[in-house]
Amino acid sequence: MEELLKIEQLQVAFSTEEGPVEALDGVELTILQGTFHGLIGETGCGKSVTGQAILGLLDNNALIKGGRILYRDQDLLRLSPRKIERTIRGKEIAMIFQDPGSSLNPLFTIKNQIEEAIRLHRKAPAEKREEMVLQALKQVKLPDAENLMYRYPHQLSGGMKQRVMIAMMLACNPKLLIADEPTTALDVSIQAQFIKVLKELKEKLSLTVLYITHDLAVISELCDYVSVMYAGRIAENLSMRDLFKDPRHPYTIKLVNSVLGATTTLDQLEEIPGSVPRLINPPGGCRFHPRCEEAIPVCSQEAPPLREIKANHSVACHRR
């Protein structure tokens, strides 16, 4: 399969009042065309920063210190803000965000906001656009789309808003969709509905999606490949199959074992000791070593590089 997006050694720091925060320290991952790629990790590990860095949507206090983000062989980090705005955002790569409540402009109708996307990226005569808006809404299984499109965001539920977001971003016709924790703010029952819609879209449109979440259950439902992130670094890149059958990194193993499945009981559930390090002053060496049961002296001195152990499976650990 063709590589659609390849992130190499991405380093991003934020300047804060307490000092610089090394949010990303050498992130590496490859997204293959037509696949759902999960990016999983605990809150604050840099998942969202990775997503926003791709689209050049990082906050003003962010500084990209190094690396490359190759999209179809062009380095997005080398494009001017203007060029990214005109040639990449929406047209090639679009993004949906965690909080559907604030992601739609409260002052414009659903139709207006989806139409804006169509106007920007697809050549269509004005009278055809309404039809396209309807189509977009129906695609994400929104009922009563004919009336719904004249509504304002505050008249919709959270789940509906998130589906409108997807409809709006897909209306841009992007090649890659970044979904940044799209279900985190939704009720569990609504989550299931949302994931069903995504699954159907995956089969119908052969979408490529970077799916950012901390929810392993969601990833296992949707994704083909997974990148496990820990404290600003990639711990392991692997296929979904390997995630459950052959996880190598101690953190990945702990992560998989900490999920409550249908057959596990609470007693069998493992917890990961310790807590996520603060990135203002991260531990030296492998950032996971203070919480790792298998740590050896070298772990606290040297950061392990990401090594390929087989096709589509690489791990950053001294013990593997």
Binding site: L55, R89, G90, K91, A94, P106, L107, E116, M169
Partner: peptide
């Protein structure tokens, strides 16, 4: 700083338009 500003930018709306249409009206 609102989410819909970032969302509008993610969808490819020009920054000037984002300010004039999405922000100013709010």
């Amino acid at each position: 700083n609102e989410g819909y500003i970032k969302a509008a930018r993610a969808k490819g709306v020009r920054y000037f338009q984002v300010v004039v249409k999405h922000a100013l009206r709010n």
